[in-house]
Simulated scan of single mutants.
Amino acid sequence: MELTDKLEFDHDDREDIYEYVESNGATRPEKIRKALTMGERAFGHHTAILRRDGVLEEVDGKLRIAFDTGTEEEFQTDDVEFIIRQAREEDLTGLVGAIRQAIGGGEYVDAETVADIVDSEGVLLRHNELESRIFFVACVNDEVVGWVHLKHPEQEKLSHTAELTLGVLEEYRGNDIGSHLLERGLEWAASKGFEKIYNSVPASNEAAIEFLDSRGWKEEARRRNHYKLNGKYVDEVMMAKQL
């Protein structure tokens, strides 16, 4: 299933199964069946169709939302070896922790919001009539050390856009992990037909602005005194890149 696909169900039971998995994350089939008070035969039939159609997948005995994940890429620098891949539901705790550690200074408000939402919902992947989200992660020895997140509003007038957040743990910066994550996110967005990617950061986050500017992002607008960080008013810098 691709993030930009419109989900249409031709049976209410299949929609109920999907919505349960979306709301609760990867779950054992029997738990879903009992929660929906669905007969074994009917449940087996509908989950088989959802799996066949690439809407759900079963991994380690649990049903979860299926996405077109792409390949797992390996990279090596003089100091570190890392892989970049699409995030899985089981990455949720490590990913939220990495985001919060990476933004420790509180100068990446959008990323902090992403971490709070994912943590409170307890669901990493999201794909419904309101919005969809996907993450790619950089991992060292199976530990998440960086991420790129894309959120896509399902409203027709904004269907060509996606919001991106990106970050790397401080001790792993300087190894091009952020550059590779950004490239992976933009390649994925372009392959799905997005035309514009945007990101907003406080003006005080000069490192993030410089990073994006050096990679072809442009400042589109600025909201004066939009944030209040540590008692001081700070502008919001709204940056974007055309694909």
Rank of each mutant, 00 (worst) to 15 (best):
E89N: 11
L243E: 03
R41L: 04
A48S: 14
K232N: 12
G174I: 10
H127R: 15
T93V: 13
F82W: 03
K6H: 13
R33P: 04
D53I: 05
A98R: 00
R126P: 03
P202I: 06
D78N: 06
L95H: 01
E74M: 07
C139H: 01
N230G: 15
D78F: 01
A48D: 08
L164A: 06
E154Y: 13
N128S: 06
Q155V: 11
N128Y: 01
L125M: 09
H180M: 14
V148T: 08
E72Q: 12
K192V: 11
E19V: 12
M1C: 11
A162E: 06
A189Q: 06
L169Y: 04
Q76G: 05
A42M: 10
K192E: 12
P29S: 15
L164S: 01
E156R: 15
K241I: 15
N175C: 11
L182Q: 11
I209H: 04
D78T: 03
H45C: 07
A189Y: 03
E154T: 11
T4N: 13
M1T: 14
V148K: 00
G106T: 12
E171I: 02
I197Q: 12
V118E: 03
V59L: 04
F136R: 03
E112V: 02
V59F: 02
L3Q: 03
E206C: 10
F211R: 05
R215Q: 02
Q242G: 08
D16A: 15
E236L: 07
I17D: 07
I83C: 05
Y198S: 11
S200R: 09
K241N: 07
V123H: 03
V55E: 02
L3I: 12
A111F: 02
A48F: 04
H226L: 03
T4E: 08
T161H: 15
N24Y: 13
A42I: 08
I83P: 00
E219C: 10
R14Y: 09
R85V: 03
E187T: 14
S204E: 05
V137Q: 00
E220C: 08
E8K: 14
L36G: 05
K31V: 15
H149C: 00
L158S: 07
A42T: 14
D110I: 11
L7A: 10
E131A: 08
A138W: 00
E90W: 09
H180V: 12
G70E: 01
T113I: 09
R52L: 02
D176E: 14
P29E: 14
L158M: 09
R126Q: 14
G104V: 07
Y233E: 10
I99Y: 00
D10Q: 13
F75G: 07
M239Q: 07
V140D: 02
P202Y: 03
V118Q: 06
E81N: 14
K157H: 08
V148A: 03
V55S: 04
G174W: 09
L56N: 07
T71R: 14
L63Y: 14
F135S: 01
E236Q: 13
R28E: 11
Y20L: 09
E73H: 09
R14I: 13
I117Q: 12
H160A: 11
P29H: 12
D5M: 11
E22F: 07
E170D: 14
V118R: 10
P202K: 09
G94A: 09
R64A: 05
A42C: 09
S204P: 02
H226N: 07
T71G: 13
K192T: 08
G105C: 06
E171Q: 12
H152V: 09
A189L: 05
H226E: 10
